[in-house]
Structures are given as C-alpha cells and as structure tokens.
C-alpha cells in the first residue's frame, strides 16, 4: 500500500512545507487512542513528522498492521500465540484496583467473593468478617475500558451486575468510596494509588494475594491489569523507531498518568 504516503507527500509538496517525507499511521485500540493522539501531537510539534492516529479496536490494529495499512497497531492486551508474526512493543500498562473505605475492617477478598458481591448474592459485609451492614456496590458506566477489563477479569456480563451506584469518572468512584464505610468500588490503579497517597481514606485490596502496588503492576504480577502494546511487522523504519523512542521516553510519563495508565519503566 503506497497510496496514502504518496497522497500525504503530494499534499505536503502542495503546501510547500514538505521538508520531511515521513509520516506514520497508527490504528487500533480505543483505550490507547486518546493517549496516542496526544503523544502524536507532541511528536509532530517537535519533529514535524505527521502521525495519523485512528481508533477502531485492538482487532483493527492487528489486521491493519498485518496488511501494511498501519506502521503500528495499538493493542490493549498481550499478543496471542497465533499473532507471533507481529512484534509487540510494550509502552505501558492499564490496571484496576478494588477499593474499600480505610475504616472497613475487611482487608482481603478473593475473586469468587468479589463476584458474589457484584452479582448481589452477598449483600452484607458480615459474610466476609466485616460490619453487619449492607454493601454499597459501586460500578462503572457502560463503554469505559475500566468496566470492560473488570467484567472480563471476573467473567461477568454487565447485566449480571447489581450495582447500588454507577459512576462515570474515576474521581467520582474515589469520592463515593472515601465517603462511605460500606462501599466497594474499582478505579484505575494509578488513580487509586495517587489518591490513597494523597490522604484519601481508601484501602486497595490485594487480588489473588498480590498487593495493588505500582511495582507489582510494572512487573506484570498484578492480575487485574493489561498490557498496552504497539505492534509492528518486520523491521521498524527509522521514522517508526524514532517515534517509539520518543513515546517511551521517561519525559512523557506525565501524559500516561493523565490517562491513568502506567508508562513502562525502561
């Protein structure tokens, strides 16, 4: 496929600013797309190389990369065995922390217990050694990648979840749980850790015995997390490897945090 680069080059020549002939196309995961768009804008500002970011799901990222339509595919999971023809470049991670109020005596819940709480089978904290009080189940609204990852991890479908409160933004979940001893919720792990460190009365529950810390996520041990990958096929072009180096530079970590993602440590 040479159509698009040719078109871009023609446009650049017409505009009279075609100092560089490179341009990059990145397609895929709608989870990563907002982050990638902002990184691409920064890259354009510094280098003048045009980067076109389009979302459409991880599946599109894989197929576009295979067909050569995209230089990179955005894939918000690890590559599967049958995708061995592609190379994954880990750029960051996305994780979820289960949170309860710091005054809640319950300090651990296993996956089955969390499922029982979210499906309404268990409605009192007393079943888990906590107070004799109704559990206030805080759930996320449809379409959020956090909700998607949560449901996928616990093998739930959204209509089985019986919430007492549905929230949009992470901050709303933090406020809800910080203000209610009997609430349980889940938010992006970066946000939860930041807020707990800043003094919000929250407790991050360990999952399958793994504590919810940035180190555990970073090392890939924390179960409720996923990889954010850029995938490519064959040798990277100079332009592509320059871009990859730019977005994984520690100096860009702030943008990852803005989107509640954890940049990969290099």
């Amino acid at each position: 496929m040479i159509k698009l680069p040719v078109l871009v080059m023609a446009l650049l020549a017409l505009a009279g600013c075609g100092t560089r002939e490179d341009s990059l196309v990145i397609t895929g995961s709608s989870t990563i797309a907002p982050l990638m768009t902002e990184l691409a804008e920064r890259y354009e500002e510094t280098t003048g190389v045009q980067v076109d970011v389009q979302s459409g799901g991880s599946g599109r990222g894989i197929s576009d990369t295979r067909q050569g339509l995209a230089d990179f595919g955005m894939v918000s999971r690890a590559l599967k065995a049958e995708e061995g023809d592609l190379t994954a470049h880990l750029i960051g991670r996305d994780g979820i922390a289960m949170i309860v109020n710091a005054l809640n005596p319950v300090t651990r819940l296993n996956d089955a217990q969390i499922v029982a709480i979210y499906t309404g089978e268990q409605q009192s904290w007393s079943a888990f050694g906590g107070n004799d009080a109704a559990i206030n189940v805080v759930h996320k609204a449809d379409g959020r990648s956090t909700q998607e990852l949560f449901l996928e991890h616990f093998g739930l479908s959204n209509d089985r979840v019986k919430p007492d409160m549905v929230i949009g933004e992470n901050q709303q979940g933090i406020k809800a749980v910080a203000g209610d001893v009997n609430a349980i919720g889940y938010v992006s792990i970066g946000t939860a850790i930041y807020e707990a460190d800043a003094g919000a009365p929250l407790r991050l529950l360990p999952l399958s015995g793994v504590p919810a810390t940035l180190e555990q996520v970073d090392q890939g041990h924390y179960p409720l997390s996923r990889e954010l990958n850029l995938v490519s096929q064959g040798e990277l072009s100079d332009a592509a490897s320059e871009f990859l180096a730019f977005i994984t530079d520690p100096g860009q970590a702030g943008i990852y945090h803005d989107y509640y993602f954890l940049p990969v440590s290099r």
Binding site: G143, V166, G168
Partner: peptide, 30 residues
C-alpha cells in the same frame, strides 16, 4: 443520583435520569 438504571420504587433507591445517561455514556459510546 447513583445512576443505576432501575425503576424508582423507593425514595432511597438510586435512579438514572435521561440527562445523566447522556452525560455518563456519551464520551465512550459508539
């Protein structure tokens, strides 16, 4: 409001209004 989609049967139950529904889901809806 709590924003749970269900029939409002008790004053103390969460409800979701049409406007809240648009606000909470629009950014991520396709």
């Amino acid at each position: 409001a709590g924003n749970v989609v269900r029939w409002p049967t008790s004053l103390f139950d969460p409800v979701r209004t049409l406007t809240a529904n648009i606000a909470v889901e629009m950014a991520y809806a396709t």
